[in-house]
Nucleic acid binder design. Structure first.
Lengths: 249, 249
DNA sequence: TGGTGGCGGTTACAAGCCGTTACAATATTT
DNA sequence: AAATATTGTAACGGCTTGTAACCGCCACCA
């Protein structure tokens, strides 16, 4: 993998009162080519935002003093720096998040650094394209053919209600496909959309992901119903997808 | 043949009655990595839209038969496939366009292909972000001699009700023939209609497709009943074809 | 009547694409 | 550090599709 590029991919501000998490994320993100500044609370966050050119804020929901939520709102009011919130799992916070937050994405703890990285890339990419987009966080749920794909939770339920275990890459791929139903996505597009990679080198890794994914979600992986192949074109999600926001009312 | 077919950036449908323009755009866009289908009028446009997964339509304002403007409106009513209109320069059309048209962009003739490319990219990028609510996929069904050809599903049932497995190219060819019953279609026409290819070079690949197709659907392929050869002319579909439309689910 | 050349059917083959297995290289967890 | 899981690479095999080549058919003609 090409993680060793020390070029500047962006300056990330991590706001978390847990020192261990700060250190962990700091090391991890730096290893992946980001500049990182870590702070413990809202006051320091303010200072950092004024002193640096921050590209993305990773913000813990629970903070001493002013809590993450209001920080988030405040930040969003003044700028459109992308925000990723870290939350504890619970219905409660989920609802709060959906209703209140102006974050671009959120991640339930515990999360793998890898997941955070993926989200960050996605958010940064989105921000890149839409400099002034007013993205509202979505606890989006996609449903198709009885399946339930809960994006915020990164979970997938089968028509029988069983949780299906997808790897991170598999999940991202599935989400990407399901978000563009009926649309043929080339391998390159899929690579770009899931990994943010555009390296053009002919790459069959997507084929492998598709293959593995099909085994997990197609009733007969030799005759896929959901993810269809378009010869010479790529792949396409063939099911009817309905989209719900968790918190709409 | 298709040596440097790069990635698939999308499937473009070019609707223009001027063959020269069709050819030009076809070659140009393909060279730039797009799949291209070219048709001459609204009727063919319809078929292409139903048979393919079109990502963008390039539509000439002036067309024989139903004119581009109403086609555009009709298309917009049913789907949200992006549309780029080609127009003659004139205040008149400019105003009409602004008022009437549901197109995503328009381009006054004469234009440079390069310019079109830029517009296309912009429109596609915009469309990509707004996931479709379209896919009112109607499934056209053609019946002949007991056979059932379901276009939306790309499936073919024999008179015994058995599913017959056709390759992609075979299917397209059969659809094209069945949609012009009694009409003699030259090899060039077939090439154009099925592949959107206009490269007229003498090509016997159609012969091969026909041969393979006959083996699958004729009871005796040495004495074809459905697909007849017209010496010096091409091929013709000799059966009576009835057409049904159903709403797909 | 036998030759000739265009045309179409078919076989054989080459090239490309895709699914998959096996495995190597990392990452992550314990 | 060992055990596990994830992810990319290589490579085999099957299927699709286009090309070349051979062959027979037909029309035409001297």
């Amino acid at each position: 993998m090409n993680t060793s590029m020390a070029e500047n991919l962006g300056h990330i501000l991590v706001v978390d009162d847990d020192r261990e998490i700060r250190d962990l994320l700091g090391r991890f993100l730096k290893k992946h080519g980001y500049r990182v500044t870590t702070v413990a609370d809202g006051k320091e966050m303010q200072r950092a935002l004024e002193g640096w050119n921050i590209d993305l804020v990773v913000l813990d929901l629970m903070l001493p003093g002013e809590d993450g939520l209001s920080l988030c709102r405040g930040l969003r009011a003044k700028s459109n720096i992308p925000i990723i919130m870290l939350t504890m799992i619970s219905e409660e916070t989920d609802r709060i998040i959906g209703l209140e937050m102006g974050a671009d994405d959120y991640l339930p703890k515990p999360f793998s650094p890898r997941e955070l990285l993926a989200r960050m890339k996605a958010v940064l990419r989105r921000a890149q394209k839409t400099p002034n987009a007013n993205s509202t966080a979505r606890a989006k749920i996609l449903s198709f053919a009885g399946w339930t794909l809960e994006i915020g939770r990164r979970s997938l339920k089968s028509p029988d209600g069983l949780l299906v275990d997808l790897s991170s890459a598999e999940f991202d791929l599935l989400v990407t496909l399901a978000e563009h139903p009926q649309k043929v996505l080339s391998r390159d597009q899929l690579l770009d959309l899931t990994h943010g990679r555009t390296e053009a080198a002919f790459d069959r890794s997507i084929d492998m992901q598709i293959s593995r994914l099909r085994r997990k979600i197609e009733t007969d992986h030799t005759q896929p119903e959901l993810i269809k192949t378009v010869r010479g074109g790529g792949y396409t999600f063939a099911a009817v997808v309905t989209q719900d926001e968790t918190i709409d009312t």
